[in-house]
């Protein structure tokens, strides 16, 4: 056998992991290092399940990481690649369930509702299920800032997800919290840039929640758990220095309720 294709068995089925591998080195920490003839390298947590030398084929079995003892949370992300929509453009948002901005295996929702607050008032939104992928479609909205939230009740667990959606540019004015039971709200919407601090406020029924832990993460983090944890001060505020591109997610828990806020950045 000169070189082999390496496959891995995951929960979702077998998939090709690397082609033309000519070196495999098992590590002491249940990791397997591999290198192919093109010089590409990979390390995976797995064990060797089968080596079919005649067929130039090695099959690995994935070692699954222990799941974190945390509740799943909801979060919303606008379907735009540059942080905002333009007036009249169809505004859509995706709804996710998981942890640390990583969607989990559970795609079922119970008692799900979604709402938007715009200059025209509050209205309930239709939620579309595209084969397990949930989407909120608002339609063509007027220039301004929209507050969107979704809520789910599953037994004693309740989840809230909120986001501010910018339609048009340069809206820095007059935003008020939506008055959710547990809400994370930016203290100054105009400043959301990488390389600067961003401040949020945690409110419970509109009142500042003091001394509560706020988790923060960002899209594409390589950490298994939330990379940032802060505690709200006597005004219910917490501050985070933004060091990553893309969207951030803030999350707070109080009893059986978990509430998230997605910070949408243009850059």
């Amino acid at each position: 056998m000169c070189e082999a294709n390496v496959y891995i068995n995951r929960v979702s089925g077998e998939e090709l992991l690397m082609e033309k591998v000519d070196r495999i080195v098992p590590g002491e920490d249940q990791s397997i290092f591999m290198e192919n003839i093109f010089g590409e390298r990979k390390v995976v947590k797995a064990r060797i399940r089968e080596m079919e030398l005649v067929h130039h084929r090695v099959v690995l079995e994935e070692i699954r990481e222990e799941s974190h003892p945390v509740h799943e949370e909801l979060w919303l992300e606008p379907s735009t690649d540059h942080g905002h929509f333009h007036e009249g453009e169809q505004v859509t948002l995706k709804l996710f369930k998981g942890y640390n901005m990583k969607p989990g295996p559970d795609t079922a929702f119970a008692g799900l509702k979604a709402f938007v607050v715009s200059s025209e008032g509050t209205r309930e939104l239709n939620i579309h299920d595209h084969h397990g992928s949930y989407e909120l479609v608002l339609g063509g909205e007027n220039d301004g800032l929209l507050q969107v939230w979704a809520e789910e009740s599953e037994g004693s667990s309740r989840r809230l997800a909120s986001v501010l959606v910018e339609v048009g540019h340069h809206h820095h004015h007059g935003l008020k919290p939506a008055g959710l039971e547990l809400e994370i709200f930016p203290t100054d919407y105009s400043h959301a840039r990488m390389g600067e601090s961003y401040e949020i406020k945690v409110l419970q029924h509109g009142q500042p929640l003091v001394g509560v832990e706020v988790r923060a993460t960002f899209a594409g983090t390589q950490q298994k758990d939330y990379p940032h944890r802060m505690v709200t001060n006597e005004e219910g505020k917490a501050r985070l220095f933004l060091t990553s591109r893309g969207n951030y997610l803030f999350s707070v828990s109080e009893g059986d309720l978990i509430s998230t806020f997605t910070l949408v950045k243009s850059f």
């Binding site: 290092f33 990979k42 390390v43 390589q222 990379p227 060091t243």
Partner: peptide, 25 residues
């Protein structure tokens, strides 16, 4: 290091965040 484990990649991400804040602040 030519290749990083998942843990090291996570550590590197944390470190660049710390260094980023330090240099920019």
């Amino acid at each position: 290091k030519p290749i990083l484990t998942d843990e090291e990649a996570g550590e590197k991400e944390t470190l660049i965040g710390e260094i980023f804040e330090k240099i920019m602040s």
